Amino acid sequence: MGFRDNLLKRITINNLVRTIDRTIGTAESGTKVDKKSMKELLGMSTFVVHRERDMDLYIRPLNDKIHQILVLDNELPLFETSLDDVLLRRDPTLKEMISIRNALKILNDKDVVKFRRKTSLDFLHKDLLKDLDLTFSDEDLESIFNQAVKALADRDRDGIVEAIVLFSEILGYVPAIPAFEIRQHRVWGKSGSDIPGKTVFGPMVIYNPDTNRLVLWVESVEKLDPGAVESLFMEKNEQPSQWIQGPAVFEFLRDKARAQGFVAPMALN
């Protein structure tokens, strides 16, 4: 796969991980893991699904005898042992439970479980990303830029949003935190803080799907300027001089990505 496809794959992986992460609770919480999203995530991995004793097991070999086996339940235990051992410990038959040796195994699986819950998800997340080639060339950036400009000219909302998301993934921009959300608009930007408890946001990409208006605020700010936000709702197409607007937004993002030279590390939050 090329850079664009690999970047889209990372975006998909990261979005699934965020979704699943929000559904993983403690053993006492009773929270149910989002199994649909987990199946989609595992479907992108080298684990092979195997169903036995009413369990969804995801398996890949480590050697002839030992496998990594993830059980798709609310605990998300990741075993390193044999399939028979996992079946015994997770869903033993009456005959298997009669053995004292087996009973001890059933009661304590710490010797074969490597991860549970969030640590299993973290392991799978890193495993999915580790071989993903995210190096890019000027040609890769130019290709995204050209498609973005065409999408803007064609009023192709999906294409515009995809281009913004691709550049945001490279630059480490995130969807706006609540304090910077703007009604009727979609907002992405760089979130950060130099002082504990103080949040700044920017540069900010702001897109209105209804009017096809695309603007960018270059500076990092602690809060939105009411006058600047008001200008977004003006009927005329012109914006105050402090805004970058139209295709120039994609020029800014392309040039920022080129200067950065690498895809920003990903944060779940």
Rank of each mutant, 00 (worst) to 15 (best):
D111G: 09
R101F: 11
D138I: 06
V49A: 13
I160P: 01
L214G: 05
P92Y: 05
E235G: 10
T12A: 11
L41V: 08
N14L: 07
V149H: 06
L83S: 06
I195G: 04
I177C: 10
P203R: 07
D91Q: 14
R116P: 00
D34Y: 02
E162K: 14
R22I: 05
D225V: 08
E40H: 10
K9A: 10
D194S: 11
I98E: 12
H125R: 11
I195W: 02
L57R: 00
I182Y: 03
E139S: 14
I98G: 01
F180T: 11
F136I: 04
F145C: 02
I24Q: 00
G261M: 04
V215H: 09
K9H: 13
I244S: 04
K105A: 01
R254D: 01
N102M: 04
I13Q: 08
A148D: 00
F3S: 03
I170V: 15
L8P: 00
L72R: 09
K236F: 15
D56I: 06
Q245F: 13
G30M: 05
R89P: 08
L132M: 10
D127K: 06
V161F: 10
I69L: 07
V149I: 12
T46M: 08
G43H: 01
Q245D: 14
P92T: 03
L268M: 15
K114A: 13
W243F: 15
N208C: 15
T81E: 07
D158N: 12
I170F: 07
A257P: 00
S193C: 08
N102G: 05
A27W: 14
L7M: 10
G25M: 07
Y173P: 01
N146L: 10
I177L: 08
D56Q: 13
L224T: 11
